[in-house]
């Protein structure tokens, strides 16, 4: 009884949040799946259970295949791009450099601004005109004599989504830099020193001492970038709106709800987004919880 009295107040204090999370996270996710498994294709009908019909049926739509392809291209370019640029910036700074605070402030500031705001200017910069009609980044490339690099950016029918990743990389690589910088600084200097004394080259020191220390950071960065990427929405709305050429599942879902008024389809797309995120977030959370137990 005394033990219960010891922990009960704590449970009571957290219980509003437990209820809120249970209802709004887990309850709503469940409800969304229920809608996705029904034939509620308009806003009035109650809808009845139809199994996985929506989940399989959607693959026969051209638009869905396109939006999945776009999401994959975007994810690959964005995740690798932000990871590499973030790593490079941290690598250039890790030994300490004059004005480090200033550099960090510049690389990180895009994180503090919304994509809706920066999208206004990115839409201009990524203008698709080339040659005589080149403006924005293409125009700048023209000034610099790099005309051969001009292309249609996000209007390119095949690789446009790779261009869409440019503003995303611009926004997130400072964050990744900060993570890697913390990782670099977590390597004890004595370890590096003793390896050098043992005759290791700088490359060997990096490969065998520093790199293993960066592994957890890299994993965390991958998870963060990946889950942001799969649900990307604001950026696309801001840069190109609802155009099919840059359609992704989150935009498709938005139009399914507001333009086609089809809850079942919207819920199906949402369910796919959730599942794609779960595939790598759930193992990460389990791994993280286990790691927490050990320390």
């Amino acid at each position: 009884m005394t033990r219960v009295r010891r922990w009960l107040p704590g449970l009571l204090l957290v219980s509003p949040s437990i209820i809120a999370i249970a209802v709004f996270v887990y309850g709503m996710l469940g409800w969304n799946f229920k809608v996705a498994l029904s034939d509620q294709h308009d806003e009035i009908s109650p809808g009845s259970f139809v199994g996985l019909e929506n989940f399989t049926g959607i693959w026969s739509e051209d638009r869905w295949g396109l939006s999945v392809r776009h999401a994959i291209v975007f994810t690959v370019v964005f995740v690798l791009g932000a990871l590499m640029l973030g790593w490079l910036l941290a690598f250039l700074m890790e030994r300490g450099i004059r004005g480090e605070g200033g550099f960090r402030a510049v690389y990180l500031f895009p994180m503090a601004v919304s994509f809706i705001a920066t999208g206004v200017v990115w839409r201009w910069l990524l203008n698709s005109g080339t040659g005589e009609r080149a403006v924005g980044l293409n125009g700048l490339l023209g000034y610099l004599g790099l005309d051969f690099l001009q292309w249609g950016w996000f209007r390119d029918p095949d690789w446009g989504m790779a261009a869409m990743a440019v503003p995303a990389i611009w926004q997130m690589s400072g964050y990744i830099m900060a993570l890697f910088l913390a990782g670099f600084r977590g390597v004890p200097e004595e370890l590096r020193e003793s390896a050098r004394v043992d005759g290791c080259t700088e490359w060997q020191v990096y490969r065998h001492i520093v790199l293993p220390f960066l592994r957890p950071v890299t994993l965390a960065a991958l998870i963060i970038l990946g889950h942001i990427s799969l649900k990307v929405f604001d950026l696309i709305v801001a840069v190109s709106g609802k155009q099919i050429i840059t359609d992704v599942p989150a935009i498709f879902m938005w139009t399914a709800v507001f333009d086609s008024h089809d809850p079942a389809k919207g819920a199906t797309i949402a369910a796919y987004i959730v599942l794609s995120v779960c595939v790598f977030v759930v193992p990460y959370l389990i791994w993280n919880a286990r790691r927490g137990d050990r320390t």
């Binding site: 999370i21 996270v25 996710l29 649900k231 929405f233 599942p249 919207g266 949402a270 995120v277 977030v281």
Partner: peptide, 15 residues
């Protein structure tokens, strides 16, 4: 709780 940090909000929006 932590899982709630990573869920895409699209997954709860319709309900």
């Amino acid at each position: 709780f932590l899982f709630g940090m990573f869920i895409p909000y699209q997954g709860v929006m319709i309900p």
